[in-house]
């Protein structure tokens, strides 16, 4: 997982509320293998970005050249609502975004982002609306997200504090995911397992299936 400390990057506005996970990653892309070079970047918000013929919608901000290198998306409320499809966070990530800013995020989606090194930042609605205006007025403007200090610096220089769970913050800053954290307990897991195996030696496993039975 990439560490997240201070990010200064182009931000793109997306003034649509309740972008659900089906819009973020349309169902028909869900059965696709993710490999380097063949991931969900095309699928991300596909039906908003492209028309029925697959032609980019010119009026859609993300398609404008000024926003092409955006790593921050400034959304409206309830981003990530709908089904719990976890591929949605991968789509955001594969597109090249590192952070989302919005008035609210769906809970499951929010958690999935954090587990993959993506930072969702919740700011009050008026602040978000003001960010949209600034980004529209100056396409290609940058926003700075200072995670250690929990601050968003708008294009106009104004600073806005945000809240984040301290454990999640720590892991993002260090770039360690849940698996890395858990494997720090490897000795405890192994000791637990050995004791359990001794107390309950009959616990089943599926090795016989592996062996072809």
């Amino acid at each position: 997982m990439l560490p997240f400390t201070v990010l200064t990057a182009v931000a793109v506005p997306l003034e649509i509320a309740k972008i659900d996970t089906g819009m973020i990653l349309p169902g028909r892309f869900m059965r696709r293998h993710r490999r380097p070079g063949h991931d969900y970047s095309e699928a991300f918000l596909h039906d908003l970005r492209f028309d029925e013929k697959g032609v980019p919608r010119p009026e859609f901000a993300m398609n404008m050249p000024a926003y092409a290198k955006a790593e921050i998306l400034v959304t409206d409320s309830d981003f990530g609502c709908g089904s719990s499809r976890e591929g949605a966070a991968y789509a955001v990530m594969d597109y090249g975004l590192r952070a989302l800013i919005g008035p609210s995020f769906a809970e499951i989606f929010y958690g999935n982002c954090l587990q993959n090194g993506l930072l969702p930042v919740t700011l009050p609605e008026p602040v978000v609306h003001d960010l949209w205006a600034q980004l529209r007025n100056t396409p290609g403007a940058t926003i700075t997200i200072d995670l250690p200090n929990q601050q968003v610096i708008a294009p106009d220089g104004s600073a806005h504090a945000f809240e984040i769970n301290q454990l999640r913050k720590e892991r993002l800053v260090l770039g360690i995911d849940d698996i890395d954290v858990t494997l720090e307990h490897r000795a405890a897991i192994d000791a637990f397992e050995a004791k359990r195996q001794q107390a309950y030696p009959w616990l089943p496993n599926a090795a016989h299936v592996l062996a072809g039975h």
Partner: peptide, 17 residues
Amino acid sequence: IGASMQLRHVLATQTVW
């Protein structure tokens, strides 16, 4: 558990938080 992140965690550690 979730089909991606939690499953990945269970596969990689045989544990779940």
